[in-house]
Computed example of a mutant assay.
Amino acid sequence: MSRRLTVEADGGSRGNPGVAGYGALVRDTATGALLAERAEPLGKVSNNVAEYRGLIAGLEAAAAIDPGATVLVRMDSKLVVEQMAGRWKIKHEDMRRLALQARDLVTAIRDAGGSVRYEWIPRAENKDADALSNDGMDGLTVDRRHDGGGASSDAAGDDAADEGPTGGASAAACAPVPRRAGTPVRVVLVAEARSDAARSTTAASVQRLLGGAPRCLVTAPADDAVETAAEVGDLLDVGSVVDAAWSPTGEVVDAWDRVVARGGTTVVVCPVEVVQAVLAHVLGIPDERRARLAVAAGSLAGVEVWGDDDVSVAFTNRT
């Protein structure tokens, strides 16, 4: 009897076309256990092309688990679902080519004794694939296989998952991300909040900005910073890594350089004066003038690094 698998897939483009990526995962249909995750950046393509690439990746991952599986594909792209079901015509050449590639995978699954059917779902029910597609848009490539009980292996290697102050998922989330042309390194600086209510508000602001996708989360060791990071981590579903260099007495510039060298998107929770120090560093403001930078406790500042000398401060004091 063939195995029953569910593929959840998504793709996105920041701009249409714009910086794009896809995400896909495979679950055991009967138990809901997570079996595989995939994500990849795509450069500059349209949203629909990214959606198709997510479908293809999901079908490939399902076939790798069981070539003759009974596969249910769930996507929030009405276009892809209707076109692959044969109810809508495919007019765009790029999508036609990708649809043929997907149909070849479907044919192989059917020839092996399996089947594939499609189901449209609202976007709210596709959050996990959406989170992976955001990783792809951030330049992260993911290819993980799970045993269905929570353990996983990553393309970076099993040893990488055991390193770092918090280990496991946190270390994997903070693994290096390859730099991609046209995709900046993004750093969200979060000034530590000083009350429970303020921490909840700050965490909600980070979630609205980044969505629910896993991100590298780094925190200074100060109590207010650690507690703020815990609130952020709960909403982003990622553990924090404590780095003493993000303290007022730490090597802040070195800490900044490490975050930029990692790539991808990193959230750093630290004291107000450390946020000021980083902004002064990237803007070339002398140390004696950095206190003039207005940074409120609990606020967010966003910095994008496009190249060695191409840095932009996207926003400050966001709440």
Score class of each variant (00 low, 15 high):
residue 211 G to A: 12
residue 162 D to M: 11
residue 124 A to R: 15
residue 167 G to Q: 05
residue 120 W to G: 00
residue 199 R to T: 04
residue 155 A to W: 01
residue 74 R to H: 06
residue 149 G to T: 08
residue 160 A to G: 01
residue 187 V to N: 03
residue 142 V to Y: 02
residue 79 L to R: 05
residue 163 E to C: 13
residue 99 A to K: 07
residue 117 R to Y: 05
residue 88 W to G: 08
residue 208 R to K: 15
residue 152 S to R: 11
residue 164 G to P: 06
residue 178 P to G: 10
residue 123 R to V: 07
residue 158 D to Y: 07
residue 76 D to N: 13
residue 88 W to K: 15
residue 165 P to W: 10
residue 186 R to P: 01
residue 158 D to E: 12
residue 198 A to F: 05
residue 119 E to I: 03
residue 182 G to N: 10
residue 126 N to M: 09
residue 200 S to C: 08
residue 123 R to C: 01
residue 178 P to N: 08
residue 185 V to T: 15
residue 148 G to Y: 02
residue 91 K to L: 14
residue 80 V to D: 07
residue 160 A to K: 12
residue 106 V to C: 01
residue 98 L to M: 11
residue 209 L to T: 09
residue 85 A to T: 15
residue 153 S to N: 14
residue 92 H to T: 13
residue 182 G to T: 08
residue 152 S to H: 09
residue 154 D to L: 09
residue 130 D to F: 12
residue 176 P to Q: 11
residue 114 G to N: 01
residue 134 N to S: 12
residue 79 L to P: 04
residue 103 R to W: 02
residue 170 S to Y: 04
residue 208 R to Y: 04
residue 82 E to W: 08
residue 188 V to C: 12
residue 197 A to F: 03
residue 147 D to Y: 10
residue 107 T to K: 11
residue 198 A to Y: 03
residue 83 Q to G: 09
residue 88 W to S: 10
residue 194 R to C: 05
residue 107 T to N: 04
residue 106 V to K: 00
residue 150 G to D: 10
residue 192 E to P: 00
residue 142 V to A: 05
residue 154 D to H: 11
residue 150 G to M: 04
residue 150 G to C: 07
residue 126 N to R: 10
residue 163 E to W: 15
residue 148 G to F: 02
residue 86 G to E: 12
residue 149 G to F: 08
residue 99 A to W: 09
residue 87 R to A: 14
residue 173 A to T: 02
residue 129 A to P: 01
residue 96 R to T: 12
residue 136 G to C: 09
residue 193 A to P: 09
residue 211 G to M: 14
residue 140 L to S: 02
residue 195 S to T: 15
residue 140 L to T: 12
residue 175 A to Y: 03
residue 180 R to H: 14
residue 116 V to G: 02
residue 80 V to G: 06
residue 82 E to L: 11
residue 189 L to P: 06
